[in-house]
Amino acid sequence: MLEYKVSARRIDSHGSEAFAKDARIVLDTDMAGRPDAFNPAEMLLASLAACILKGAERVIPMLAFDLRGIEVKLHGLRQDSPPKMVRIAYEIVVDTAESDARLDLLHRNLQKYGTIYNTLADATELVGSIRRKG
């Protein structure tokens, strides 16, 4: 089993910060919001994006997949009562000359082996697609 450790603290009424290893992230915990930091819902979406991108780094060499670039676009839908994410949609855009079948293979691998992906898929509606850039 792998373990992860993160700590967080309130800076003031406008923000907080989280730490892991030697990294620090400013968090938007201001009730009015702030444009220079991720709020908790955005952090969740960013975590999914990071999971997909890290998964790509893992499976691309195993698949001998020709990749020039990859990006992930996400959209979360939150209900108010009780507050929770009810749907997350994503689009993976890949800059590649690989076939559609190989693009689908990459997508299946990203879905199957993603820790955050699988956690969220069990908790909310998670839908997404993969397409070639261009």
Rank of each mutant, 00 (worst) to 15 (best):
L110Y: 09
D28C: 03
P40S: 11
E17Q: 15
K5F: 07
L106R: 00
G76D: 07
D66M: 05
A41D: 05
K73N: 03
L126F: 11
R9F: 02
I52W: 04
V86Q: 14
A32T: 06
I11L: 15
A121N: 13
Y117D: 13
N118G: 03
D28Y: 03
A56W: 06
S81T: 01
F65S: 01
A64Y: 05
Y113I: 08
K133W: 01
N39Y: 01
L63V: 10
L74Y: 05
D36N: 11
R10N: 10
V72C: 07
A23I: 14
E125G: 04
D12H: 10
A32V: 03
G76Q: 09
K54E: 11
G128Y: 01
M43A: 12
D66K: 15
D28F: 01
Y113S: 04
I88Q: 10
F65Q: 01
G55V: 10
R132Q: 05
M43K: 08
V72L: 02
T124C: 14
D30G: 10
A46C: 12
V86D: 11
N118V: 09
S7G: 06
N118D: 12
C51D: 12
R132S: 03
I88C: 12
I88T: 11
E91Q: 15
Y4M: 10
G15K: 15
A56Q: 07
T124V: 13
A56L: 03
A20H: 13
A46H: 07
V127S: 10
D36F: 06
L53T: 10
L110R: 01
T96H: 11
A97N: 14
P35I: 00
N39F: 02
A8I: 08
E125F: 09
L110T: 09
G69F: 03
L67P: 00
G55Y: 04
N39D: 07
V86I: 15
K5H: 13
G114T: 00
G134A: 09
N109E: 15
S81V: 03
D30Y: 08
R87D: 12
L27K: 07
S16F: 06
L126N: 13
I52R: 03
K133G: 03
Y90L: 11
S16E: 06
A50L: 03
A37R: 01
V94C: 08
M62Y: 05
L27S: 09
E17L: 14
L74N: 00
E98Q: 14
I130Q: 00
D95E: 14
A97K: 14
D66N: 15
G69A: 05
A101I: 00
D80M: 12
K73V: 01
K133L: 11
E125K: 08
H107E: 03
G76S: 09
Q111W: 01
G114N: 06
P40A: 13
K54P: 00
A41P: 07
R78I: 14
Q79P: 05
D12L: 12
V6H: 05
P35S: 12
Y4P: 06
H107R: 08
P83V: 04
